[in-house]
Amino acid sequence: MSAQTTIDIAAEPAVSLRNEPVQARSTARLTALLDAAASIVDEVGIERLTTAMVAERAGASIGTVYRYFPDRIVLLQALGARNFERVMARITEAIKDPAQSDWRGALSTAFSSVIDTYRTEPGFRGLRVGDQLDLRPLPNGRTHKSLVAERLVEALSARFGVENSAASRFTLEAGLEMSDALVARAFLMNPQGDEEFINVSTSAVRGFIAERIGW
C-alpha cells in the first residue's frame, strides 16, 4: 500500500466536561487551563495539583475552572486525554512517513516518537496518557495502552500488511507496557531522559517483539 495512504488512528473518546466549549474564546480558555495544569504536573506531580493552583497559573477564577471541570480528577483526565491525542498524532505521522519502507522501521520510529513526547509535551512525564489515574476504564475494559496497541496494529496492517490479530495486539500492548515502565523511570529525574534506561527499554522491547512476531 502507498506510503501516502491515509491512516486514521482514532483518539480516545473525549472526557465529558461540565460545559463543552462552543466558541473560540471558550476553547482558548479551556486550552489555557489545560496548559496550566500541564505545567503544574511537571513541577509538582499529579498528586499535589489542585484546581486553585490551576486557576492561579491560568490567570482565571476558580469558578472558571469549575465551569469546565467538576473536580481535579476530571481536569487530570482531560489533560490525559489531550496527551493521548497528541502522542497518537505523533505515532500516526511516524507510521505514515514515506521514509519508512517496512513495518519494523515504522514501529521503531513510532516508539521513538513516544520518547520524544516525554521531552517536548508539558505534563506528559507526570501523567502520560492517563492510565495511572486508574479511575474510569475505557469501553470493554481496555486501557489507554491497549487502545494505542489496537490502533498501531490497524495502521501497520493497513500500510504494511502486518497481521491484525489478537496475538499482534497483545504483543504491542505488552511492549508498550514494558517501554512505559522503563521510559517513565528514565524521565523521573531527568527531563531529557536517562539514556541508559531508554536504551534498555529499546533493546528489551525489540527482543520481546522479535521473539513473538519477528522484528
Rank of each mutant, 00 (worst) to 15 (best):
T92I: 02
T92L: 02
F187A: 11
Q132H: 08
A174P: 05
T64W: 03
L76C: 00
L107S: 01
M88I: 15
R206G: 03
A36G: 03
A55L: 06
D134H: 14
I95Q: 06
L138E: 07
R119A: 13
R18G: 05
L17C: 04
K96Q: 13
N140D: 11
V200L: 15
G123D: 00
D116L: 09
R67N: 15
A89Y: 08
R206H: 10
F111P: 03
D194M: 09
T109I: 03
L182W: 09
A204I: 09
E43V: 08
R185D: 10
A32V: 00
I95H: 07
L127Q: 06
L49Y: 09
F84D: 04
R125P: 02
I62F: 10
S201I: 00
A186K: 08
G80I: 00
R159N: 07
T109V: 11
T92A: 15
R136A: 10
Q77S: 12
A184P: 07
T6C: 05
A37K: 04
P139K: 05
V65H: 01
N190K: 14
E20G: 03
I46S: 12
R151V: 00
G193C: 10
A14D: 03
N83K: 00
T64S: 10
F160N: 10
R57E: 15
F84R: 01
A60R: 06
E196Y: 10
F160P: 07
S203T: 12
T202F: 02
S2C: 02
G45H: 01
E85Y: 04
P13Q: 14
G123E: 00
E154Y: 09
A89W: 09
D194P: 09
D97G: 12
S26M: 06
L107G: 02
S108I: 05
N83G: 14
R136N: 11
V15K: 04
V148M: 15
P139I: 04
D180T: 10
L76D: 01
Q100R: 15
A94F: 05
A81T: 01
P13A: 13
V114H: 01
I62K: 14
V205Y: 13
